[in-house]
Nucleic acid binder design. Structure first.
Lengths: 336, 336
DNA sequence: CTGAAAGCGCTAACAG
DNA sequence: CTGTTAGCGCTTTCAG
């Protein structure tokens, strides 16, 4: 089928494309009668506006690009939903691209969004990302940038993060209150502020309790299930750890499996707390204590910041979303 | 920053935009030397092609739109990854939109993709979808359409589905072989073929075993955790069921929780099998038997069909991806 | 209130 | 091998 354009409509009604364009855009300088005529026949003819042509002309589009490491993480998919909740009613479209935690794919994604002239870019950094040149392009192109969760300060624009510090603090304090004496920490990459902050909260809780910070009890780059499994083996062999605060639920899951394979009873002999409250956490046996992030709210805030940035309003430089500790069976013991 | 265009490059090098365009497109009718010059200075000047302009001119774009009910379902997010695996290397971009299982949002998504003149649309129907007018538009616009998983025959184009029939058959046969005598079935909406087929497989297994099909043991529209929880209560009150094959893992989860709350021991007193093999299934206590769908392979096939359709090659009308039954503790008992 | 005209950035005949 | 020209569909001054 030939696609129908505004000129087709104009011809049929004996007017010019400009008038049709204005009528469709609800321009106030058009008489009520022609507006109605135009809108009726456009529907009748099955007109679909060509947004590419419009964006090309206007120099900007109503599409917002969003780059996330993976969409099959509970946290990220809920942030996406939160963003859509605000963006769609405001007349924006969202396109989501996965970086797969790979810098190379993040670079390509940024490039592709820029080439599509999106109205703005929402980004959570991949684990691999250690250089920010590709994002300098975004800045140079004057494309609004909003970062969330995994952010870097070396770029301008809004940064919306979780209260990772408090999360780490609450998780660790809980383990201490449950009577664990040697609380270890499985962290992520220190390149990411989120993990540094969770670790800082962990240390703060130890110090508050007058406990010594033992570097041997802190292992970084342990975020996968596999890493959790293998690292917990090393940990119990080499140290006197009796509990672990993991910076993610997947490593906590791996750690739990590792401990079970060694015959440990959880939580009596070993306490575990994760981070992110993945859907499986409450269903595990024993159920996994975790720190819940308010992903929907974060998404809402991210979208709001993006809209403000597009409208060139003042944007909050940093915004922190509160977290909530959820105690479950993997750690709950003799709480005082 | 002003965005740099091919004319800017052309000016700087004293040639015409056409030459630059051709050099950038690796057109063979361009001398090696100018090609190199153009590509170098384009990089140097930070040129980003405006794909909107190109698509407008060419009348088609390299962007494929994909509409899924929800991205936070293990199955769907893996199909997405499978699609990307094929589409990205082939030079296509994928944009994903969620319908949220709502017809209204599915309609809007289709409209938006059409307005963006995507090169093709990949679709899995929302649960609510009971009319297909919005998809007639896709056909009318000559936009290639590939359906997967939740498909309707009333539209042309490729349809890639799981072998739901065999899945239902294997799950039910397993329960029968484990000695359960009154196997019930929690289905989804019969509007969707996937659920009708799973049910057909269930019935086939019963009949093969010489068991009577009892309509009281079959409940439809039970796909959420909540529905599974409440319906299992009704089921054990009103019938003699001693096992249930659920058309989804979420309802199976709810059913398991409901049975536990009633003091049932699983699988000794009641057997459960789900469908989809969500990540939580293996982690539950007891772990949930389920039917695994090969989502990555499905994604690959979907993408391949789309590429063929775009290149106007022959496309397979229907393709069926095999499934695999995974027996776990929720059903495994006295197997023979 | 409506029309005429220009141009967003790119590609593709058609000519050289 | 490269230049000329026209136009994709739309918006937006600038004139009436």
């Amino acid at each position: 089928m030939k696609k129908v354009t505004i000129s087709d409509i104009a011809n049929k009604l004996n007017m010019t494309p400009s008038t049709v364009s204005r009528a469709l855009a609800n321009n106030k300088r058009i008489s009520e009668s022609t507006r109605k005529k135009v809108q009726d026949t456009s529907k009748e003819m099955g007109y679909q506006p060509n947004v590419m042509a419009a964006s090309l002309r206007k120099g900007t589009s109503d599409t917002i690009g969003m780059i996330v490491p993976r969409i099959n993480r509970h946290f990220f998919s809920n942030v996406i939903s939160g963003v859509e909740e605000i963006l769609n009613p405001a007349g924006f479209n969202l396109v989501v691209i996965q970086s797969g935690e790979l810098l190379s794919r993040e670079v390509k994604a940024v490039e592709s969004l820029l080439q599509n002239r999106v109205g703005g870019i929402i980004l959570s950094l991949s684990l691999q990302t250690n250089t920010f040149e590709h994002l300098q392009d975004v800045v140079k192109h004057n494309t609004p940038l909003v970062q969330f969760d995994r952010v870097t300060k070396s770029l301008p624009g809004s940064k919306i993060t979780n209260d990772n510090y408090t999360g780490g603090y609450l998780a660790t304090r809980h383990l201490i209150k449950c009577g664990f004496k040697h609380v270890a920490h499985f962290s992520g990459s220190y390149k990411l502020r989120a993990y540094r902050e969770r670790k800082a909260g962990y240390i703060a809780a130890l110090e508050e309790a007058g406990m010594r910070v033992d570097e041997k009890l802190i292992v970084d780059d342990v975020i996968t299930r596999e890493a959790g499994y293998s690292q917990i083996h090393k940990l119990v062999m080499r140290t006197n750890a009796d509990a672990v605060f993991c910076a993610g639920d997947y490593s906590a899951l791996g750690a739990m499996e590792g401990l079970k394979s060694l015959g440990y009873h959880i939580p009596d002999q070993f306490g575990i707390v994760g981070f992110a409250n993945e859907p499986f956490s409450e269903l595990m046996d024993p159920s996994l204590s975790s720190v819940e992030q308010n992903a929907l709210e974060m998404g809402n805030k991210v979208a709001a910041a993006m809209i403000k940035a597009i409208q060139k309003e003042e944007v909050p430089e940093e915004e922190v979303i509160p977290v909530r500790f959820i105690g479950r069976s993997s750690s709950w013991k003799d709480y005082k």
